[in-house]
Nucleic acid binder design. Structure first.
Length: 564
RNA sequence: GUCUCCGUAGCUCAGUAGGAUAGAGCGUUCGCCUCCUAAGCGAAAGGUCGCGCGUUCGAAUCGCGCCGGGGACGCCA
């Protein structure tokens, strides 16, 4: 039952405005004592030519209260609606029971595809802490869209093209050993890359060699391709291990090299539509009309660029997936780049240009400034994850020495903490990497949510709870129970808003709201009460809490252990 | 220089397409485990919402201008 809707239609009957509009005006009062919903009458003051408090009083007087609404009181310029606690508890908890793991979801998406371009690792480069946001934000959106009835298509747009692979081959042939690399993996490739950049200082001719080798890759030369594919395989193997730990999956690994033969179309279409312009030897699309620098499509030597490739990829994805939206989870540094080529797609006449969305996020830096592969000061994601697991294991040894399978739980909680760190604030915030912050398990953190979940599970286990039978919802009328119910009731809207804004943190905050309310409830009210009716109802509430936290953490990509 | 994002408590951040006395967490100080997991709960202290003008019945939220910071600005991705 949607109380907001029923209140809106009751209001509509009294004042003659459209219920849909009124529903948007309804808000949540700042404190629960005021009520569950508030209708501000200020907006009506002008048309009705009366003071807001007068309007509120009149409306409240003439209103016929819908079922489930206990009272409508005029206070200040507001009408405050208080729901019948029993009706609310029943509606919310029975909905959670009925929907189970689907709670907070819907068929809103109607099975339409949503492409999500995220993580997008670079071949022969380390997978470092800077890749965490795109990876976990993208993976969370992937699940959130699926929960809302879309079909997510996860795309890892590999950085597997460019002259750096020519450099890699040169470095490998001069100083590399196959066996060392097979053993040491990406770290060894990076060493070669760093060495190349040292040596090229004194031997500029290396760059010519590198260009030649890259040309051989482009031309499909067997030896060049073998090495190129080998570098790729080594990188992907390592990256796959991290994805496995994080529970992240992709439906496509079509990266930059995949589009190599698909860029002619971009140039052809641009030319056909007269959008290309020769400028300083390069082919560009002039965007001065839109207050942007030109988008370069072809270099003066005829080679394609980043933008060309992105446009080719967008065309391909539209053809292949017919997406309703195509998200690019990429740091805000590339803001202009996306605005430019989105505009070019629009100028090409494709109406779906509006469905291309840059989901930008802040950058990760170290306390000493930005990370750099060449400087070698970056923090590897694997190291962060293992440190988190180690710390968690130590805590478990101390707090729950009798726990079975400590290693597994330590992994779940440690990784949960790391993943959480990228999902609990708005995306746009910059992050200064800090070991203490990322390994914090107190307060509003992943482990806090996990702990609350485990706590709820523990009670249910001890009570041998079975989710059936009659429940007297009227006994859930204390402030703490009411607050938990309100938080659970708010969860579905949070998931939907998280999708609309592409902001997973809205789910994180909703989970915290449930967890925090439950912990207060847990402390103040004894769930295993002597009175059977009270006990049954509180267990029902505990079960709903468990379910919602489980769903929320699941959407974020965080495991919810039953004990910890 | 131009464009863009950001500026809320000591720190890190919320603040719902302007609304009722600005909220959390961390940190600090002080309380709470003979009872369901103390990775928890409670209390105290802490804010000219960067500054100014404007729009409005009402502005942290919208507009303009400053100040401070991040980022980007043709042949890298």
């Amino acid at each position: 039952m949607d109380f907001k809707q029923t209140i809106a239609s009751a209001l509509a009957q009294s004042c003659g405005l459209a219920a849909g509009e009124l529903e948007n005006w309804l808000e949540t009062p700042p404190s629960p004592e005021l009520g569950d919903y508030a209708f501000p009458c200020f907006k009506l003051a002008k048309t009705l030519k009366k003071a807001p408090p007068v309007i509120a009083a009149e409306l409240a007087g003439t209103l016929t209260l819908p079922e489930g609404v206990a009272s409508a009181r005029a206070e200040g310029g507001y009408i405050n609606f208080t729901l019948d606690k029993r009706a609310l508890a029943k509606a919310v908890l029975e909905r959670v029971s009925a929907e189970g793991e689907r709670y907070g979801g819907s068929d809103l998406g109607g099975g339409k595809n949503v492409c999500i371009d995220y993580s997008s690792v670079n071949i022969a480069k380390p997978f470092h802490i800077g890749h965490l946001p795109t990876t976990v934000i993208g993976a969370a959106l992937y699940r959130i869209y699926n929960h809302l009835g879309y079909h997510s298509v996860g795309i890892n747009h590999l950085g597997d093209w460019g002259t750096q692979f020519g450099k890699m081959i040169v470095a490998y042939k001069r100083w590399g050993e196959r066996e060392t690399i097979e053993r040491g993996g990406v770290d060894e490739l990076v060493k070669l890359y760093v060495r190349y950049h040292q040596e090229v200082e004194t031997q500029p001719s290396l760059d010519d060699e590198a260009r030649a080798w890259f040309k051989r890759i482009e031309d499909g030369d067997a030896e060049a391709l073998e090495l190129f594919d080998w570098f790729k395989a080594i990188t992907l193997k390592e990256v796959a291990e991290v994805y496995d730990i994080l529970g992240v999956r992709f439906d496509s690994y079509a990266g930059e090299s995949f589009y190599n033969d698909k860029m002619g179309r971009v140039v052809d279409e641009l030319r056909k539509k007269n959008l290309l312009k020769l400028d300083q030897g390069a082919q560009i699309v002039d965007l001065s009309e839109y207050k942007m620098p030109p988008c370069i499509i072809l270099r003066s030597d005829g080679a394609t660029l980043y933008a060309t490739r992105d446009i080719a990829a967008a065309l391909y994805r539209k053809d292949t997936y017919d997406f309703a939206k195509c998200l690019y989870v990429v740091a805000y540094q590339q803001d202009l780049h996306f605005r430019q080529w989105f505009k070019v797609v629009e100028l090409l006449g494709y109406p779906w240009a509006k469905d291309l969305i840059h989901v930008s996020f802040g950058m990760v830096s170290g306390t000493e400034g930005s990370f750099s592969t060449r400087k070698g000061n970056m923090v590897k994601l694997r190291d962060v994850l293992s440190a988190a697991c180690e710390k968690t294991l130590a805590i478990i040894e101390q707090k729950s020495p009798d726990l079975d399978d400590k290693e597994t739980v330590a992994g779940q909680v440690g990784i949960g903490a790391v993943v959480w760190s990228s999902l609990y604030n708005g995306r746009i915030k910059d992050v200064v990497f800090d070991w203490d912050a990322i390994l914090n398990f107190d307060g509003e953190t992943g482990p806090y949510a996990q702990y609350t979940h485990a706590r709820a599970c523990s009670v249910l286990r001890k009570a041998n709870f079975v989710p059936s039978g009659a429940v007297d919802y009227a006994v859930l009328d204390d402030a703490e129970s009411t607050a938990v119910i309100a938080a659970i009731a708010a969860f579905p809207d949070a998931v939907k808003e998280a999708m609309e804004k592409n902001e997973p943190y809205l789910v994180s905050r909703a989970v915290i709201a449930v967890a925090s309310a439950f912990n207060k409830f847990y402390y103040e009210q004894r769930i295993m009460a002597d009175d059977a009716a009270v006990r049954t109802a509180r267990l029902k509430l505990t079960d709903a809490t468990r379910t919602v936290i489980h769903i929320g953490l699941g959407l974020l990509g965080i495991a919810a252990p039953e004990r910890m």
